[in-house]
Simulated scan of single mutants.
Amino acid sequence: MRVLVTGAAGFIGHHVSARLLARGDAVIGVDNLDPSGDVPLKQARLARLQGLPGAERFTFHAVDVTDGPALRAMFEREHPERVVHLAARVGVRAAGAASRGYLDTNVTGFLHVLELARGVEHLVYASSSSVYGSGTPAPFREDAAADRPLSVYAATKRTDELLAHTAGHLHGLPTTGLRFFTVYGPWGRPDMAPMLFLKALREGRTIDLYGDGRMRRDFTHVDDVAEAVVRVLDRPPSGAPPYRLLNVGRGEPVALRDFLALLERHLGTRARLNPLPAQPGELDATWADSSALERETGFRPRVSVEEGVARLVEWYLQHSAA
Rank of each mutant, 00 (worst) to 15 (best):
G133A: 15
A8H: 02
P242Q: 04
L256P: 03
F140T: 05
L245F: 10
S304E: 05
Y316A: 09
H221W: 13
T105N: 08
P149S: 07
H15I: 04
L276T: 03
T269E: 06
A278R: 14
H85Y: 09
I28E: 03
S134Q: 15
V303C: 13
V39N: 08
V124Q: 03
V90F: 02
R141N: 10
G96Y: 03
S151A: 13
A278E: 12
L170A: 10
E307M: 12
V16C: 06
M192F: 14
V229M: 08
T6G: 08
E252I: 06
G91E: 00
R214V: 11
K42P: 02
F140E: 14
A321H: 09
F299D: 05
E306Y: 10
P241I: 09
E78W: 15
R217P: 04
G13W: 01
V232H: 03
S151W: 00
T182V: 08
A321V: 08
G101H: 01
E296Q: 11
P137D: 15
P149V: 06
W287Y: 13
Q50R: 15
T156V: 07
R300F: 10
S304Q: 07
E252C: 05
V229T: 12
L260E: 09
H85S: 01
A18G: 12
G168Y: 06
A70N: 06
D191V: 15
T136I: 06
E264A: 08
H14V: 09
S291P: 04
A18W: 01
L21Y: 07
V232P: 00
T136L: 11
N106D: 11
G177L: 12
H14P: 01
V3Y: 03
M215E: 11
R93G: 00
T176W: 03
V113I: 15
P301N: 09
S127Q: 05
L49H: 01
D224L: 07
H122I: 04
S151T: 01
G29P: 11
A18Y: 02
T156G: 04
F140D: 06
T286K: 00
E115G: 08
R57A: 15
